[in-house]
């Protein structure tokens, strides 16, 4: 997926793993381009979000729109409230660690129009801060707590960023690639 900066970055950094696995490739089809519905939604998103869009693209049935962290609340509000978009279900909120930056990914779905969208926000690894979207979808609550738990992303304005999956006082962010997974000794 050419449009996604994150992917490119990740490939470079994770060179050792890629090398190790070289030569075992299966018959790979290239990543699929957007299907018709996805393209229509993408056009709609570009029109509605206009100035907020940093980059856009997508694959399969999922148009991807990259926005700046500070705009995310406004973008989500538009996505949810604009009649033509009507993304009323926050399908998933994930954090992906691309090592030089973290990416918060919002998967949206419209129960009425049955279309999907993906919003992406890049945040620096050393100061990952994104405004919370809990006022827009209450369902973002635990996803954001999880993101904070495992990746250390601070969702500003979240009502309660207490640890969710980990226990109180857990050191470090085990979701990140840099977490010393094999050195970690608890027992």
């Amino acid at each position: 997926m050419a449009t996604d900066r994150g992917q490119g970055g990740a490939g470079e950094v994770r060179q050792p793993q890629a090398e190790r696995a070289a030569g075992h490739g299966g018959p790979q089809a290239p990543a699929q381009p957007l299907d018709a519905m996805g393209q229509a939604t993408l056009a709609l998103l570009q029109r509605s979000l206009g100035p907020y869009v940093v980059e856009s693209g997508g694959s399969f049935d999922q148009p991807v729109v990259q926005v700046r962290p500070k705009d995310i609340v406004e973008v989500c509000r538009i996505c949810k409230e604009r009649e033509a978009l009507d993304f009323n279900l926050l399908h998933c909120l994930s954090v992906v660690d691309y090592e030089e930056h973290l990416q918060v990914v919002y998967h949206l779905y419209s129960l009425r129009l049955k279309h999907k969208a993906v919003l992406k926000v890049d945040v620096p690894s050393d100061d990952p801060t994104v405004p919370t979207v809990t006022p827009i979808w209450r369902g973002a609550d635990w996803y954001e707590r999880e993101g904070h738990d495992l990746f250390g992303v601070v969702f500003e304005g979240h009502p309660n960023l207490a640890p969710l999956l980990l226990y109180e006082g857990f050191e470090g962010y085990p979701g990140r690639k840099s977490f010393p997974f094999h050195d970690y000794q608890e027992w």
């Binding site: 075992h24 490739g25 299966g26 790979q28 399908h91 998967h107």
Partner: peptide, 23 residues
Amino acid sequence: QLRRIARPPKGEVFVHCENPRGD
């Protein structure tokens, strides 16, 4: 017919299915 070790191309995908408990 696939190779033994699956190596999907660079990219990302979101797939959902209807689980007994939901999506």
